[in-house]
Design a protein around this nucleic acid. Sequence first.
DNA 1: TATCCTTCCATAGTCTAACTATGCATCGCC
DNA 2: GGCGATGCATAGTTAGACTATGGAAGGATA
Lengths: 109, 109
Amino acid sequence: MHRDEIPPGTLYLMILKTLARRRELHGYEIAKTIQQNSEDVLQVEEGSLYPALQRMLVKGWVKASWGTTTENRRARFYRLTPLGRKQLEIEQSQFERVVNAITRVIQTA
Amino acid sequence: MHRDEIPPGTLYLMILKTLARRRELHGYEIAKTIQQNSEDVLQVEEGSLYPALQRMLVKGWVKASWGTTTENRRARFYRLTPLGRKQLEIEQSQFERVVNAITRVIQTA
DNA sequence: TATCCTTCCATAGTCTAACTATGCATCGCC
DNA sequence: GGCGATGCATAGTTAGACTATGGAAGGATA
């Protein structure tokens, strides 16, 4: 089954939202969660995910701590910060706003 | 009123769709049409539009011819090619597919 | 034992495309 | 004269998702 590329910018939104409902997740879990929730349409490449998480750390949207998974593997766990939670709201409303606008254009046009 | 940036890739879609229902339009008209149909949410910058039209010419999605506007100005008119029409269908279904997937992620997550 | 898949992290480098800034020209209006 | 709107176009910047690649550790299997 063919997978599509993720439109630049929306990766942040999906990561933020995925983290918002959990206490903490590590990178691999985030990727798998997004893939599953998109019903396999979206595939988050590792070369996209980890740089994005680094940027989000710098921006202060997430915090990270090293730990071990249930399978006893070394992993880095990410948690949303209050700033990240605010950013999520911004990104979400922005997304809806833009998608609605585009939809109007390609319906009305 | 704050305007949002256009997600990379969707500009093609909006231009194609805008041209699909007209015989021909020049660049400035395309920009204004998109802006109006989006209810002023989307602002197509000239520095985005004209390079995009050039690329679409190269791809063979549009044809161009010089003429004069109703206001007697020199302008370049663009028309959709059959290839452009096919591309429109591709872009449109791709857009819906991806947006639906993202929506699932940010609702389910 | 060797091999292979999966899980997990990370970086380097490429590439697309939307952006800002800038330049040009003409028209109408004040 | 100046200014805004109409029109086209290019140069250079930037963000961010991608490919490719590297590593390490676990479990399964031959």
